[in-house]
Design a protein around this nucleic acid. Sequence first.
DNA 1: CACCACTCCTGCCCGC
DNA 2: TGCGGGCAGGAGTGGT
Length: 270
Amino acid sequence: MPELPEVEITRRSIEPRIAGRTITCVTVRDPRLRWPVPARLPRLLAGRTVQRVARRAKYLLLECDGGTLILHLGMSGSLRILERQQDPGRHDHLDIAFGSRLLRLRDPRRFGSVLWHTGGPAQHRLLRGLGVEPLEEAFCGDLVYRLTRGRQTAIKPFLMNQAIVVGVGNIYASESLFGARIDPRTRAGTLARTRCERLAAAVKGTLNRALAAGGSTLRDFAAADGRQGYFQLETFVYGRAGEPCRVCGGAVREIRQGQRSTCFCPGCQR
DNA sequence: CACCACTCCTGCCCGC
DNA sequence: TGCGGGCAGGAGTGGT
């Protein structure tokens, strides 16, 4: 379940190993991802040079001469660098070769996507409508305050709406709301300014801590799948229904919001 | 618009 | 030990 920190850590780990290198061969073993991987992908990519690896929301952008390969890891996707050919596992659907070095995509649940796009990546239909990056300066209490005005929806699904703020998935949404001491059921539009400040700070803090935790394993990331950094992070509420809150000791509760589980501490979050 | 439910898929966990 | 069933979740899509 890569969220923004896992995707960013993946980006940092692969960029230095593929930027400036030329794609020699592309192997699609199973094209059945979120959308079918185009059959002409190998022909489209061969001979192109990766200039840089960027990220927008949870999308990785392999910016090449003449176009961008847009990757999304979905629920279970991971990328790894191999220095030499290795037998692919059952879910290793795609290899991009740079000489003997390989970038290999594994995705058991196949919710990920691989798309080729010519022209500016920002103009792609999947990227056009995305909201603000939570780790950028523009994302602040004042912006959260303005974005929430008039919104009737609960703050938890609001936070997870990628058209508003990107990169905050189910786990970090719950964790951030705990950090801000806000009840996930609160209607977004009713949050006072100070609570918006707390929320913006909590989102940044949660994501940055996850980044730091993942960053610490970056050295071995050659072999990594995004989980490594991810499961190192001790959660305050997510996945802890019925267990004692780490702050007040009260029982953590689990509810459903928009077909998603939400965990929170009724004692700490108001 | 704003909001909501549905959908894709496989690994994992539970109960029998 | 095996098997069926339920659940998890990102985010696009389509309905109200």
